[in-house]
Design a protein around this nucleic acid. Sequence first.
RNA 1: GCGGAUAUGGCGUAAUCGGUAGCCGCGCCAGACUUAGGAUCUGGUUCCGAGAGGAGUGGGGGUUCGAGUCCCCCUAUCCGCACCA
Length: 944
Amino acid sequence: MEYDFRAIESRWQKSWREEGIYRVENGGDRPHYYVLDMFPYPSGAGLHVGHPLGYIASDIFSRYKRLQGFNVLHPMGYDAYGLPAEQYAIQTGQHPALTTEQNIRRYREQLDKIGFSFDWSREVRTCDPRYYKWTQWTFIQLFGHYYDRAADKALPIAALEERFARQGTEGLEAACTEPMAFTAAEWNAWDEPRRRQVLMNYRLAYLADTAVNWCPELGTVLANDEVVGGLSVRGGYPVERKLMRQWSLRISAYAQRLVDGLEQVDWTDSLKEIQRNWIGRSEGAAVWFPVSGREDGLSFEIFTTRPDTIFGVTFMVLCPEHELIATITTEAQRQQVADYVAWAKNRSERERQAEVKRVSGVFSGAYAVNPLTEEKIPIWVSDYVLAGYGTGAIMAVPAHDSRDFAFARHFGLPIRQVVAAEKDAVSDPSTWTESLDSKSGWAVNSGFATGMKVKEAMKAVIDKIEEMGIGRRTVNYRLRDAIFSRQRYWGEPFPVYYKQGVAYTLPEECLPLELPEVDDFKPTASGEPPLGHAKRWAWDEVKRCVVDKSLVDEATVFPLELSTMPGFAGSSGYYLRYMDAHNDEAYFSPEAVGYWQNVDLYVGGAEHGTGHLIYARFWNKFLFDLGLAVKDEPFKKLINQGMIQGRSNFVYRSKQDNGLFISKGRIKNMEEVTPIHVDINMVDNDVLDIERFRRWRPEFAEARFELEEGKYVCGWEVEKMSKSMFNVQNPDDLVDRYGADTLRLYEMFLGPVEQAKPWDTNGIEGVHRFLKKFWRLFDSALESPAEGEPSAEEMKVLHQTIKRVTDDVERFSFNTVVSTFMICANQLGELRCRHLEVLEPLAVLIAPLAPHIAEELWHRLGHDGSVCDARWPQFDGRWLVESKVKYPVQFNGKMRFTVELAADCTQQQALDIIKSMPEGQKWLGGAEPKKVIFVPKKIINIVC
RNA sequence: GCGGAUAUGGCGUAAUCGGUAGCCGCGCCAGACUUAGGAUCUGGUUCCGAGAGGAGUGGGGGUUCGAGUCCCCCUAUCCGCACCA
């Protein structure tokens, strides 16, 4: 029988669908395992071959775990809200709801063709009201909680109110926007709006005037991870800093726990490092510097990681946004400072970042006093100090900070050395070409700290300023709160309404607050959210949801919040929803989360390291504080699949003769030809299909070719996969041509899952040939099965394969699994193996990789059920026993040599084997070895 | 600039521990079968050399009886962050 993959695959896909064999139940006796893929944005372009790479890897692991006897949760869904979907809708002029629906259908078709074992009964879509009900619900909880640093967790805001009524801010340690201090008496005297205003300072979801990333082109604000180099990630449009009243999530409150949690998870070091850098924890000191000559005792706070260099401060710098500037600037400097601040403000974020090397700044005319030396030091204003980090003010130590050094050199400010690389190695800083930033070395010219090592000096200086009451040891994070509102249409509406300008959340019973249909969903340049067009909706929903009916009158037409939530809102907790996807009473039941706990294996791209993976961890930690999630970290193990790049093909057109195309090997000088992208679908192993090329474009119909060995060989280059380069590979074409099993095997065979690699189909034939060979092996054995016992040789091949496949699947080395199967098929083919008891376990073994062919073979072997319910074959080591002498070596008058033996070989057996070998006798000189050292598993060193 | 990763034949890669470098596949070469094409099968294929032999895992050094693998320095490429005090 021929290997008819089309018939086999459609038959089994249909059967799986009808039998619902991938449906998973919560509970049962089997151990549980949760395998999750990062769910896709259903974009208009459909899936390309890069998408399924991770899905195939996770599917292999899920199927493997299932065959090992685990109850495996392996769900899939769609991240359908957010900018990409909406941008696509705007481009095509269709409503996002419609395009999203179409795209999802297309994605589903493409996914189904590849034969995944997803439990589609648990599908979630972030744009489905039954799903986003819980996104909105979580927002309400975030609004209703604050972060208590003493308890180190989120607590209900009601507890905070109670505390304020009892003792004001006395003794409170809580994450907040601005530090506040008031007494219980003051709190109790305030009215409701005033109190709410104060509480907003502490809520985990809060409204505040924030310097945001405003993208005029997209008509919305963006989070920090959505902006790279001053341009929006989505679309690449310029982004400017703008002060706007926006919702934010107080993710910074969790900064330390987000750092600490990385210790517990099994992620790659590089991804953990990306997160650590993004959170940017740095230890140092906060120090108050008084402004000189002020009767009101005015002072300002700075943050430094180098308190030991405080004796080397020669000037102070404030960021242009600093509130103190207006107060301290002297009359003489007022105009200059105002000009500078105005100039700095108008500079786009992109300009500022592009001109980092350019030094700019202005003297304020005011002076500060160094609290340790009593020295008077000038206060400058410069935009190299950032408003968003620390306090927006620094103490400048030009001798030991490269940025301060550049600034001092530019403006001719003094430079004073206070650290020396070697003890007492003091030199004249005016001769220096760069600052000495290293933290190793000794303090010099540093008052009481002189002679100490830098590390000691740091501690001594902090102790001193704490003792003087002018500062404290502190930790600063780079991680900033996540801006949560978007002035866009396609997102979750906020469950928020306003009463006299004060924000209230809707009652939970009213959820979901559904996204209305609007005629015009396009963003506006002014930043007015498109939901403003939905007058009827605002009206009706307010009437339905708002408790206080008096609000619904002509005067307050739009008491609802009109922004929507960003894309990451819906994707932050979806893995929890899969556990209990149809629950209308709760996000997920305690039983469901108690059973599945958290994700055992998460597979997805590393590009989410600073976005989704931070937000999801934050979201989970918050739900953990609420007692809903049962684990502090959501994703135990994480595998980053490498990006698949495109591999473009070129033809080379002669510059002299526009109708002539020269094969790559015949080109003498690349200057004489123009490379032209050609569609990779008409190139096979870099050989051009000349007829298809002629038909491709009218201008190539008459093309002539200078061939090499009768072929036209194309050039190639690795580029981004994109339509314009004609290098997009659609998985459907390959499935049609070779079948899903071949595609699955080939994507894995390409190389390690984690590695970035260009896509090319040059080897796919080989993988397809293997499947045919594998099929024939079974086919001939089924036709005339061998009688009697399988040979030791055959058993050895089988057990070698079981061992290697099991080990390699365990360590996610799927490319070597494919190789192992190829070797196995070659060897059994050579042995002409027709023993069904040798072949049957192989059908199970290959089921995770190539489920369709496995299912068909399983069926042909006479089994009624699915191969998915089979048991993973057990490795039996006794078939592999062998021995082999490796390197005999003599040294130090002793003999030592190394022997390779089977894993279960005993010491005595090892010695017997060695002594039985003629060389062994010679090396040992007839003597008994004195010492046998088992070094690794297999190799034994023997010392005589 | 800081941080992380990677570097092996013509190509993708393999070599769980330090133990005969190059498994498996592509491509290429030769052959078998075939009217032909396709499909299938067999043998060969790191480089230099006719051969004996020699060289060889980006470059240089080190540890070791033994290094692709461990350590130090350098180079190139990729990724992340980027005036973060």
